[in-house]
Design a binder for these strands. Structure first.
Lengths: 183, 183
DNA sequence: CCTTGTTGTTATCGACTGATAACTAAGTTG
DNA sequence: CAACTTAGTTATCAGTCGATAACAACAAGG
């Protein structure tokens, strides 16, 4: 073994959190093993548990992180041009980081567990609020915006959009409807 | 124990499949135990496995069944009035059977596994095709329709719509945008 | 009534997996 | 450098869970 570089707990936790996003996005909350996250982060499995307490707390931290990133993306986009299609274009760039969106989808799907559902509802509501206050959109405009976002998120999970897309004629049809998503 | 009523394997498999939809909707593919499905169906856990081979095959059968039900709902709605908002109203009634929609969402989320992703993409594509051929909608109209459906599906998973909804102001805002969903 | 096919069970295994305990080692400070 | 704190490991457990095997009970036909 090469000499391990020692990091502060906060730095290591950061790496573990990124690994957790990748792993949880791939196989969901229940389907992901903590030792797979540990392997991705390059640490031992018990250390992952010690840094975050439980697997569930790590999952929740990953969900919060993803929502932070999405909100930040919207805030940045609105700073340039505070309109819905500016945020829409920004969401399109998030497709490149499929893990973020798919993890969020796993959060929605796992919402039957109150410990997960409560924060997920809270963060989704916050995103709705941010979208409206950043762009001045009406409820109906925000609804159309979020609906489109959810379709794209589902398509990302099915891997028909984003990195290495699996070609499907229906997917091409649908993607043609969003100007500036395809690349 | 009361005298067990003996059913044909097909009849029992039907009951197990319904139980599987309920259970998988609640806790997802990896998070659901086959003995919980067995308990809901009133049979032993090994019998569940014997009827469907593996847990994965049972999950796939459940996904196929849900897609059948959704397609049938659309077909029926189009028979009465072959327009998009007729199908939309029909999808609204499916919210009462939250399990169906949430199971589908678990299917999307679990699509990273090729054994699940392949049939899920196939069925989603088929629903897109059916929607267009039943209503004569353009790709863009179908996209808006499916986007709305995905938002409602995600909201169903978060339990802010459907039976015993958890009240959230943002959810009320959003639901007001769909005429005739609220009841 | 007895044989045969089908429905269903109990018993059990073997692999997995989150979490804990106990220990090691690397910095850090006086 | 010695005492202490913090980062990280190895070893291991206790519970879980899908699957298999072997057996039991019920029904039906000859």
């Amino acid at each position: 073994m090469t000499t391990r570089t020692r990091l502060t707990a906060a730095e290591r936790a950061e790496q573990v959190l990124e690994a957790a996003i990748t792993a949880f996005a791939a196989t969901g909350y229940a389907g992901t093993r903590t030792d797979e996250i540990a392997r991705l982060a390059g640490v031992s499995q018990p250390y992952v548990i010690r840094l975050f307490g439980t697997k569930q707390q790590l999952f929740l931290a990953a969900v919060e992180r993803v929502c932070d990133r999405i909100e930040q993306t919207f805030t940045d986009a609105a700073a340039q041009r505070p309109e819905l299609d500016s945020l829409g274009k920004a969401y399109g760039t998030l497709l490149a980081e499929r893990d973020l969106l798919v993890l969020l989808l796993h959060g929605f799907a796992a919402s039957a567990d109150p410990a997960i559902g409560e924060p997920v509802r809270r963060r989704f509501g916050r995103i709705y609020d941010r979208v409206r206050e950043l762009t001045g959109a009406t409820a109906e405009e925000a609804e159309k915006f979020l609906a489109t976002g959810m379709l794209l998120t589902v398509m990302a999970a099915m891997k028909v959009v984003g990195p290495d897309p699996i070609a499907q004629s229906w997917a091409t049809d649908l993607l043609d409807c969003f100007p500036g998503i395809k690349p």
